[in-house]
Write a protein that binds this DNA or RNA. Sequence first.
DNA 1: CCTACCGATCGGTAGG
DNA 2: CCTACCGATCGGTAGG
Lengths: 195, 195
Amino acid sequence: MVELSRRRAIEDVASELFRAHGYAATSVRDIARGLEIQGPSLYAHVTSKEDVLWAIIDRAAGRFEAAADAATADARAGDPAAAIEALVRAHVRVITEDVGAAAVFVREWRALGDERRATVLHRRDAYERRFREVVETGIATGDFEITDPALAATAVLSTLNGIPGWYRPDGRLPAGRVADHFVDLVLRMLQGASR
Amino acid sequence: MVELSRRRAIEDVASELFRAHGYAATSVRDIARGLEIQGPSLYAHVTSKEDVLWAIIDRAAGRFEAAADAATADARAGDPAAAIEALVRAHVRVITEDVGAAAVFVREWRALGDERRATVLHRRDAYERRFREVVETGIATGDFEITDPALAATAVLSTLNGIPGWYRPDGRLPAGRVADHFVDLVLRMLQGASR
DNA sequence: CCTACCGATCGGTAGG
DNA sequence: CCTACCGATCGGTAGG
């Protein structure tokens, strides 16, 4: 592992602990132990335990948003299936590139204070809206066979957000294959046909 | 609300608090406050905080298993689509009948002690296997167009287990409509066709 | 079901 | 980054 900023190392250790045990069940001293320093020494680098959680979640949110921006820019307008494929690949890539942070982002936002929690929920809403709008476009073009686009978008994201629950970088399926499978599953979910 | 056993009332209050804030972030005194008694009084009814979590999770697991048993008994053998539909309807029904308990079951099993956590994970594996076996049957009969049945079963359950994250009994969609939509989405995910 | 209380641990600060 | 320490809160017990 290359040199990381101390601050980033703290967040990586904390991500793994928050993912494995949850934010509330992880103590500041647990994080410090993972860095082989004393508990209070952590406060030379962070101002509070919640700041560490916020840094992890804020960065993860930013990576999802940036990846979706790039995916949307790449995909040709007027092809909803291609647009969904790009969004799914982007989402899966962000998850598999840092599955610890993704798990914390998906599960631990409830532990944030009111203001930050509200901010994260708004950003999640805006992010989900991108999926929903593509679903709506696909309904309009006749590519998708969906009667409730809001529910379909929620279901798609639930499907993808299960990945941090089982994906491991050294697991049976490499990240690219995971993305391929979920692109197929999601597209079929939306396109329907055989019934 | 009808008379409930005191023990059951404790579990219902705890379910809501565990769902909203997580097990670790909920104190025994928080649970007691929801019942309008003092913190230590709770111990007249339960032996530990973890016992309450276990009771919620164990009961939820039993309800999922019993519902799947009934669904499997009902569905005609040799029709994988009907079998999946019955399993999905059973799963959604268990979630929507007690969304608090379902959320705790899905999210909070990490907080159990080693032995109980291992037990729950084995039961989850066995439960997921039922879905996977129907997927495998569907591949064999040609009804399903799936290349990785284990991943497909995991994806289906992730999709369904997102429901406790947003479903509310007084929400826009009644439980039966939620089940209808997820049956459609899941069947299309498995049956494929249009690509 | 209550009051009084316990030891352990929590997040965090003081002062190097 | 350390040691020494703080007040608050935790799960849980004693003894009615």
